[in-house]
Design a protein around this nucleic acid. Structure first.
Lengths: 338, 338
DNA sequence: TGGCAATATCATATATCGTGGTCATTCGTT
DNA sequence: AACGAATGACCACGATATATGATATTGCCA
């Protein structure tokens, strides 16, 4: 591809003069400037940002790593982060780990080796710790998103999972449910632990028993969960009258499973969950959810990151965003009360 | 950050030896290799891919540009492309244009200046032509996705929009509808033109009139559409009994609008559209759609791109993927027939 | 068995990729 | 002659390729 040397030769000037024209600094006469610009256009010249960031030591690129690009929660986060990045003159590029630690590690290496200016990071879980430490050891500006990691001190924007979970479960209790099951994410993820905490707390506050056999753990992206657990719940005498799914994807999977067993929601069992479904909610608003301000997650995370890029020495900050309860058709009082 | 020079100094070897250890080529004694590796690990060394790709003239990075990251169709495409890229040893990074030509242009410049190995490109529309030409002028391997651009010769993976549209409209006609409106995407986008073609063709084949006032044009991501048009349709004596929305987002927006006017779907009016809603379809399968194999779009596009990276001289190829009709609750015979 | 050339193995010096910063130099004016 | 504006020469950024130098190993023959 064309370089400043090619252009310099054609324009009968030195490469440095071309560089000056490109960056619009230093003194270049209008005549040579025009001549150089014309040749650049004719040759479809594009500056090589590899070479440029090699000498400038910065790329003006920020990356966002999410764990599930098909999850509307994360894509909405992405939109927020993108808008905030563009407003500040940064380009945003995305990576998707698919809840895989291996992919996460590879992306971390890619980001480090690309010398991006900063990373917005939704970690896979607690085992992401070495990856985060690797970023920090290399002094890479970093902001955690949605999930915290024990033992890692870093800026973070997270949701109030415990509070949201408690609100959901208390709603169910108010509706008369006493046997509430939980389809949770992996306990290696902070949000799953917090949601379990909120679930337990709501039960205890209302003097309801906490039955561990009513709690199961899947991965947040639903792969590899034990489908039989739900089946076994339905076979019990004291079958739960409501299920709390810890995120939107788990709620969908649960719903599918219930349908395949001819269990109707909400007639036979109520279902509530965390996170909306993006625009799809409009089709037929159905699930009662604790909704998180996804777009704001992205915007605020990006702002925090850009401040950290400007000064990586400041102490770590943590932002906890509230969730709001949206009551819809999927949760109703249990049969014996209606 | 640490460089091979730092490591070389500590290991008492030359930078070149360190480079050999990193790339596992050339002959290095086991002793020095071990020594160098230890120091690299101690210093958390990460190779600088800017410097590397500067000399190697390749980055092993492929980028995918989509027009709406919150659209489940595109995120599913992304997952397919990602899987195919990883299988072939490439890293995939994403860009999102939000249906904006300006953002598209900026991403094109970024990709060119980053000297990525190839670009998978869902163009905003016909006006993307200069952007695509810019890529081609710089010899950047390129595969179009989902949308074609008149006057641009390039590899492409697209859906059979015309056929899908015809299938949808013919289903409505079979159900007894005769007044079918179309909420289309911009006529500057190839898929919108094809879907209009299919719509018109289905009407003509069934000896139904084509009324231009029953066709409106919005942007595919729904921003800036003229909401009043739909309102005016509903005010007419001969109000349409069915609406065909040209993609999932437009269908949602239409649905919202109808709801706000207390028009019920499907009781008062039927609604069909292109593209699924990802996992959200499971919540409550509702809309009748022409479904495109989104994941396959990504996989096949990526394979095509990788072949083009290996040989950019071969003639352009075009792959047209079929869509399948999924009949659901949103389309029923019109009132007067039931 | 000793001696030396031939060969294989390991390591380094130097040039290069495309750009920007610094400082020296040239040019045109007054 | 003197000054400021315009331009150029050279090096650095962090890596790799090539050619070459420095050892270690082997083979061969007297």
């Amino acid at each position: 591809m064309t370089t400043i040397y090619d252009i310099a030769k054609l324009a009968n000037v030195s490469p440095m003069t071309v560089s000056r024209v490109i960056n619009n600094n230093g003194r270049v006469s209008d005549k040579t400037r025009a001549k150089v610009k014309k040749i650049m256009k004719d040759l479809h010249y594009v500056p090589n940002s590899m070479a440029r960031s090699l000498v400038l030591q910065q790329s003006h690129i920020i990356t966002l790593l999410i764990t599930d690009i098909t999850n509307p929660f994360y894509t909405t986060v992405a939109r927020g982060a993108e808008d905030a990045a563009n407003r500040n003159g940064y380009k945003l590029m995305f990576g998707n780990t698919d809840e895989s630690l291996l992919k996460e590690q590879e992306y971390v290496d890619t980001f480090l080796s690309m010398r991006v200016d900063g990373v917005l990071f939704a970690p896979v879980g607690d085992d992401s710790k070495p990856h985060l430490e690797r970023l920090q050891q290399n002094n890479m500006p970093l902001v955690l998103l949605d999930r915290e990691v024990p033992g890692v001190t870093a800026d973070a924007v997270i949701g109030d999972s415990k509070d949201g979970a408690r609100k959901l479960v208390e709603l169910l209790i108010q509706q008369g449910h006493t046997r509430i099951a939980l389809v949770n994410g992996s306990s290696h993820v902070s949000t799953a632990r917090e949601r379990l905490n909120g679930y337990v707390e709501a039960l205890k506050l209302n003097d309801l028993p906490v039955d561990p056999s009513y709690v199961t753990e899947w991965k947040y992206n639903q792969t590899g969960g034990d489908r039989e657990v739900i089946r076994s719940w339905m076979d019990r005498e004291d079958r739960p009258t409501a299920i709390f799914a810890a995120n939107n994807i788990l709620a969908l999977e649960t719903l599918k499973l219930l349908r395949s067993m001819d269990v109707r929601v909400p007639d036979d069992i109520s279902l509530v969950s965390f996170d909306d479904f993006g625009q799809a909610d409009e089709v037929s608003p159905f699930l009662t959810v604790a909704s998180q301000p996804a777009y704001q997650f992205g915007v605020l995370g990006m702002q925090m990151l850009i401040e950290r890029i400007q000064n990586n020495e400041q102490p770590a900050r943590k932002l906890v965003l509230p969730c709001s309860l949206i009551t819809r058709a999927s949760s109703i009082p249990p049969l014996h009360l209606s």
